[in-house]
Amino acid sequence: MIQTDEELVLLSKQGDDSSFQELMRRYLEPIYNFIRQYIKTEADSDDVTQDTFFKAWKYIKKFKDGNAFKPWLYTIAKNTALDHIKKKKAVHFSDLDDLGHDVDFADTIKDLEPLPPEIFERAELAKELNQALETLHPDHRAIMIMHYHQDMTFEEISEIINTPMNTVKSWHRRSIIKIRKYWNKKKR
């Protein structure tokens, strides 16, 4: 019988190593890919991923029963990644804050148009998508990955990145528009 995350957390709190290792196996890949949205080098991403799971193990006894494990883990991952960036000073921290809080045209759009089907016929679609994502702010990029690739709700995402849900939706909208603009430029 497959145990839920919360059941595994409960066992981990009681000192069961195999339960914590099962949680690691479940989340290693998504957390690693989430961290890669913030940290580009493989070596640094390795370190931050290790730090994330070590911290999760160390503080698991403080994890409140009844809460969802996934957002908690992702929050640790994000904070660890940002701490690492600050330490390395690879990016000016003010660059990470440059999210454009002003309401613009994107926020007034209710529904976004579907992608044109010919996009899916492009030979290097995956590579181009990664390049398109590179043009986004790390938080916006993380939102797109978490929502579309890791099937997280906007509510979970807002909890992880500690941002109001409407702001998350607004950033999501802008990211989609930016990605579409990227492809429109590629067409020309």
Binding site: Q21, M24, R25, L28, E29, Y32, N33, R36, E42, S45, D46, T49, Q50, I109, K110, D111, L112, E113, P114, L115, P117, I119, F120, L125, A126, K127, L129, N130, L133, M144, I145, Y148, H149, K169, H172, R173, I176
Partner: peptide
């Protein structure tokens, strides 16, 4: 706001990084 499923289809094609095998150990 609702988004078209084409975006989900797009992101299913994303190239994800392979997790280095040594991290777990």
């Amino acid at each position: 706001m609702t988004t078209d499923p084409s975006y989900k289809k797009l992101f299913d094609m994303i190239e994800t990084e392979q997790v280095p095998t040594h991290i777990f150990d």
